[in-house]
Amino acid sequence: MERKRIIKFGIDWAAILALILCFIVFTAVKGGAFMSQSNMVNILRAMAITTVFGIAATITMAPDGFDMSAGTLGSCSAYAFVSSYLWFGQSLFMSIVITIVTTLILYQLTMFLILVCKIPDMLATCALMFVHQGLGQWYIGGGAVSTGMRTPWNAEPLRTALSDSFSAIGRAPWIIIIMLGCVLAAYIFLDFTKFGRYLYAMGGNKEAAKLSGIDIKKYRYVAGMITAVFIAIGGILVSSRGSSAQVMCCDNYLMPSLAAVFVGRTVGGAEKPNALGTMIGSMLVSTLENGLTICAVPFFVLPAVKGAVLALALIAAYAYKRE
């Protein structure tokens, strides 16, 4: 019995222990180069975008959903943000509003397939990955949205340069503040509101939640709309950080964000997607990537490390569920 408790404690706090171990090992190997203030800011800045996309996935997974199209939709959000600002000369605030509204509109198709057509989440969003890629690249003419480039219809952009306020969103400290704000908002929403409790009830047992009087479709739709807002924020951060919207610029954030969510499910034995756990999972993934990069590990090895983290997180998440 004691042995089982020790094993369960190790699984429940594996993410925290692994994070501490990463700091110890990388500090021992690289010393001040890893633990320097600038590198700590680099880790926080690198994890910010993964965390925001992870929060979007957390909201989706709370009612037992699963969104594979967050990365491609995030790229569409990035196109909308930069094109609104550069091509059409909108203010920074209006560009953000347009981006969020555009993402909400595009997410209606996701909700239609899932709630009306009753297609399983994973199949519906896998199909939409290709739809988002096609629509996004058609809109930008297959190139990118950046300064010095004409529009796909060969018109001159109304704005020819990005302002400091535009670029500041993707730099420290704003990108870190936005990340913390998203985590706090999701934490309060999921843990301290009726909507959050209902989403967790749906994730635990959808049929029981339905029988208890919860409007399954309504709350799943609410979760989808909130997910879309966080995806839009993720796209804004990516394009601001890169000072452009490149083709499929957000696609690579899908797997790290999913890894962060599954790592977060195990933290403290939560056994459910949660905002604080997702942030810890994202920090673990970003710390590993940062430390291995400083240790001169070839960049093409890093995806294998992320995949291993996801696999171990899945093992930890479901090892005791089988019992």
Score class of each variant (00 low, 15 high):
Met1His: 04
Arg3Thr: 08
Leu19Trp: 07
Cys22Asn: 03
Phe23His: 14
Val25Thr: 13
Thr27Leu: 05
Val29Trp: 01
Gly31Gln: 04
Gly32Cys: 12
Gly32Arg: 13
Ser38Gly: 05
Ile43Asn: 07
Thr50Lys: 05
Gly54Tyr: 03
Thr58Val: 02
Thr60His: 07
Pro63Phe: 10
Asp64Tyr: 09
Gly65Ile: 13
Phe66Glu: 05
Asp67Gln: 09
Ser69Trp: 14
Ala70Val: 08
Gly71Lys: 13
Ala78Gln: 04
Val82Trp: 02
Phe93Asp: 05
Met94Trp: 02
Thr103Ala: 14
Leu104Gly: 07
Leu106Ser: 12
Leu106Val: 13
Leu106Asp: 12
Leu106Phe: 07
Tyr107Phe: 12
Ile114Trp: 09
Val116Ile: 15
Cys126Gln: 14
Ala127Asp: 11
Met129Arg: 15
Gly136Thr: 09
Gly136Tyr: 08
Gly142Tyr: 10
Gly143Glu: 04
Gly143Gln: 05
Ala144Thr: 13
Ala144Gly: 09
Val145Arg: 02
Met149Cys: 11
Arg150Phe: 01
Arg150Ala: 00
Ala155His: 05
Pro157Phe: 00
Asp164Thr: 01
Ala172Trp: 11
Cys182Phe: 05
Ala185Met: 04
Asp191Gly: 13
Thr193Gly: 08
Gly196Gln: 06
Leu199Asp: 03
Leu199Trp: 11
Tyr200Ser: 06
Glu207Cys: 11
Lys210Val: 15
Lys210Met: 15
Lys210Phe: 15
Ile214Val: 15
Asp215Lys: 11
Arg220Gly: 15
Gly224Asn: 10
Thr227Val: 11
Val229Ser: 09
Val229Phe: 05
Ile236Pro: 01
Ser239Glu: 01
Arg241His: 09
Arg241Tyr: 02
Ser243Leu: 00
Ser243Asn: 07
Ala245Asn: 01
Cys249Tyr: 00
Met255Gln: 02
Pro256Phe: 00
Ala259Asp: 04
Ala260Asp: 02
Gly268Pro: 05
Gly269Ser: 07
Glu271Met: 03
Ala275Thr: 06
Ile280Arg: 05
Val285Gln: 12
Ser286Pro: 14
Leu288His: 13
Asn290Phe: 08
Asn290Ile: 10
Gly291Asp: 08
Ala296Trp: 15
Ala296Phe: 09
Val297Thr: 07
Phe299Tyr: 07
Phe300Leu: 10
Val301Leu: 11
Leu302Phe: 01
Lys306Cys: 04
Val309Gly: 07
Ala313Trp: 00
Lys321Pro: 01
